[in-house]
Design a protein around this nucleic acid. Structure first.
Lengths: 233, 233
DNA sequence: CAGTGGTCTAGACCACTGG
DNA sequence: CAGTGGTCTAGACCACTGG
């Protein structure tokens, strides 16, 4: 397979950004410099940069340069980590607290509470296949997400969002009244192999959280992923 | 303001497609031909075509050519019509019932109940600018969506999903108990001019509805639109 | 002002589709 | 096979940012 220069360059720059060698806000070398160091034409450098721009990783200003996009939360980890990113951006302190950690016949089952500055805002239950979960400690799952911990290439997750009333456990762990409104998200995370690796349930007090979805009107491709549906009744 | 050739060309091609001069599936003239007829370089033609590809209007196959994308379902109406589509697919009968229709100082305000086989599943309030709404009748809004009725090119909508408890009006119109869980969606629909044209609130009984979102893990482009966020507290 | 990205040209070679 | 899009080069001129 032939190497495609602009993709190689885009991947290389992306890695530098992900690794933190290029921090948010940092200005990249000029197109001319990059063309020189990668030994390609400026057009090829631009094509690479445009790939990254399409992904929201970098942006440009004419007469100024290309720079690493800062705040626009570019997390591959999905909704929850998006929140944690928002929190750290706001200077608040995100925290995970493990409520329970144990195995049933087929899964490692972990229940955690997520807090922001000590305020609990999510109660998360994760079911992880036992063979994958056997290497994880309670400390592991308190300090990192399953996406970070598992040696799995995740492809996508399907989230189903519903509403419910706070039950006794919600009330106790999230410090809300029994019967107050909750957003409930069930997430199924699928690896690039097409295997459903993780299932998790996330319960949020409605007064603390909302879900934002952007729906393009034109052309179905990107629009289909989000949609309300009637549940079987 | 300087003319930007590739945009002019993209706009011209788009118009031909929208007007139907180029039907779905039709193959465009080759890049070389287009370059000749527009009297630009092939690179500029490609740039124009890539703009249209990003919009999902055209696609290409190497060695074959560029062709008009088969109308990927005018599902452009967003989540609600998705539901109505599902209903008709299931052979159920969707219905809209206008609860109130009137003007405040600046808006036409319409409250409707959506039903499936006579079962109410959504209470929708729409705020439409008075100048646009002045031509609409109560019968109009009962028989069609605002997207169908308004002479506006919609670009996208941003939806914010939350949870709440059913209030007295919800209970009466949706036939649920007061205090039962509800999914509440606020939608802001923006035209291609960048103007926020419609604002609407959709209230669904939680036991009847759920929201499905697909989150790709790789590459930011399609992933950013959906995300949970903490509300200001 | 010198330097940057935005646009554009006129070429080139290649991988790929269809007949 | 001739024709197509995909990639890439080495230039060019311009509008724009900052100092």
């Amino acid at each position: 397979m032939r190497e495609i220069r602009y993709r190689t360059i885009a991947a290389d720059l992306r890695r530098q950004i992900v690794d933190g060698d290029l921090a948010p806000g940092a200005v990249l070398p000029s197109e001319a410099e990059l063309a020189g160091s990668y030994d390609v034409s400026r057009v090829t450098v631009r094509k690479a940069l445009e790939v990254l721009r399409d992904d929201g990783v970098v942006a440009s200003r004419q007469g100024y340069g290309w720079f690493v996009e800062g705040d626009t939360v570019r997390q591959s980890l999905g909704a929850l980590s998006t929140i944690e990113g928002q929190l750290t951006d706001q200077g608040r302190v995100p925290e995970r607290r493990v409520v329970s950690f144990g195995f049933d016949r087929e899964h490692l089952v972990v229940v955690r509470v997520n807090l922001a500055d000590g305020l609990p805002f999510a109660l998360v239950t994760v079911w992880c296949p036992a063979d994958l979960g056997s290497s994880l400690s309670r400390d592991d799952v308190e300090s990192a997400t399953f996406y970070e911990l598992l040696p799995v290439d995740f492809d996508h997750a399907t989230q189903t969002i519903g509403a419910a009333l706070a039950d006794d456990r919600d009330a106790e762990l999230l410090e809300v009244p029994v019967g107050s409104p909750m957003l409930v998200v069930e997430r199924r995370s699928v690896s690039t192999d097409g295997v459903e690796v993780l299932r998790s349930e996330h319960r949020f007090p409605a007064h603390l959280t909302e879900f934002v979805v952007d729906l393009p009107f034109q052309e179905g491709a990107e629009l289909s992923p989000a949609g309300l549906r009637l549940v079987q009744s």
